[in-house]
Amino acid sequence: MASEVRAWLLLLLLLLTGGASLGPPAAAGAAPALFDVNYVKDWGRLVDHGTEVNLILDQTRGGGFKSKSTYGSGFFHLRMKLPSGYTAGVVTTFYLISQPEDGTRDEVDFEFLGDKDGVPVTLQTNFFVNGKGGREQRLHLWFDPAAGFHDYKILWNPYQLVMFVDETPIRVVRNLRGSVPGYEFPTKPMLIRGSIWDGSTWATDGGRTKVDWSRAPFTAGYQGFDVSGCATASATPRCGSPGLWWNGVGYRNITAAQRAAYEGVVKKYMTYDYCKSSRKIECAYI
């Protein structure tokens, strides 16, 4: 009982204060990065405001962007503000994906699944290794992600994959490939992508509730276009270098406070976990 109380107090502290800052110290007076320094429009409707872009979904198309480089490790983040109101069927994303984007890809996903008025957006996370996914976890956030911008982060290094909402970890995967036979972990260099698109066939109520085009257009905002990553075109040992800050000792395991916050999120906010019905090897080590 005492351990549960401590865990909830730590979770409350992280949610209220944002916890310890994750990432390198910000340079004093540094200007926010412009979109076109590290990213390019990929398809559809994108409005570039310099340090902020809007992706727009209407009945004709959605929109997406991608990073100019692929990365072999890093601590990636985007600030996002989701479409508001009735957003059933609307899917808004931030993800990493290897090239080519085929049945051999590695991938790490934040997917925000819209819903009807008054029903919270579902955040679905997933990861693929060699084209194999089926590792979905879903949760309802403790805030309205359409009311303002929040940070969504992916720490991916040779030791672990951790996904954060602001400073709170919501998914933790250890890299045990060298010690557990058959263990799978993303290792291929990946692009950073963002997108908004029509997911009416599956995103809300299993596809029973579709996009209401009378509510269109749906607009998602993105900020935070600086990138902390090891740019590379192919797998290379240098992306595992301990000289890269995101591979340092402080990023090889989550802290006790982060573990408590993560366990609190799982207990209170998670609505679906593939590990409850899966025999995938990594489920034994979460």
Rank of each mutant, 00 (worst) to 15 (best):
92 T>D: 07
212 D>I: 08
2 A>E: 13
37 V>S: 09
24 P>R: 12
153 K>C: 03
250 G>F: 08
256 A>V: 11
265 V>I: 15
26 A>H: 07
201 T>W: 05
9 L>V: 15
3 S>A: 14
33 A>N: 05
162 V>R: 06
260 A>E: 10
11 L>Q: 14
242 P>I: 05
171 R>F: 11
31 A>Q: 14
76 F>H: 05
81 K>Q: 15
198 D>N: 15
11 L>T: 13
148 G>C: 02
218 F>G: 10
186 P>C: 08
110 F>K: 02
161 L>C: 12
166 D>H: 06
175 N>G: 04
97 I>V: 15
261 A>F: 04
171 R>H: 12
261 A>R: 03
16 L>I: 01
240 G>Y: 04
196 I>L: 11
283 C>I: 06
23 G>L: 10
266 V>P: 00
60 T>W: 12
10 L>P: 02
44 G>C: 03
24 P>N: 04
60 T>E: 12
66 K>N: 12
65 F>G: 09
206 G>E: 04
257 A>K: 07
281 I>C: 00
268 K>I: 13
279 R>P: 05
217 P>W: 01
261 A>N: 09
120 P>E: 05
111 E>I: 01
73 S>W: 03
28 A>C: 09
112 F>A: 07
25 P>C: 04
155 L>Y: 07
210 K>T: 14
162 V>Q: 07
257 A>T: 12
19 G>Y: 03
15 L>F: 00
132 K>P: 00
256 A>Q: 13
57 L>S: 07
149 F>W: 06
149 F>K: 01
94 F>V: 09
209 T>I: 13
230 C>Y: 04
220 A>D: 05
199 G>R: 00
227 V>N: 07
202 W>S: 07
82 L>I: 07
233 A>F: 00
261 A>G: 15
43 W>N: 14
158 P>D: 03
101 E>V: 03
276 K>C: 06
275 C>A: 04
241 S>D: 13
44 G>L: 10
220 A>Q: 14
255 T>F: 11
286 I>W: 10
165 V>E: 05
233 A>W: 05
220 A>G: 10
281 I>Q: 03
112 F>D: 01
202 W>F: 10
43 W>V: 07
176 L>C: 03
83 P>Q: 03
119 V>H: 12
65 F>Q: 02
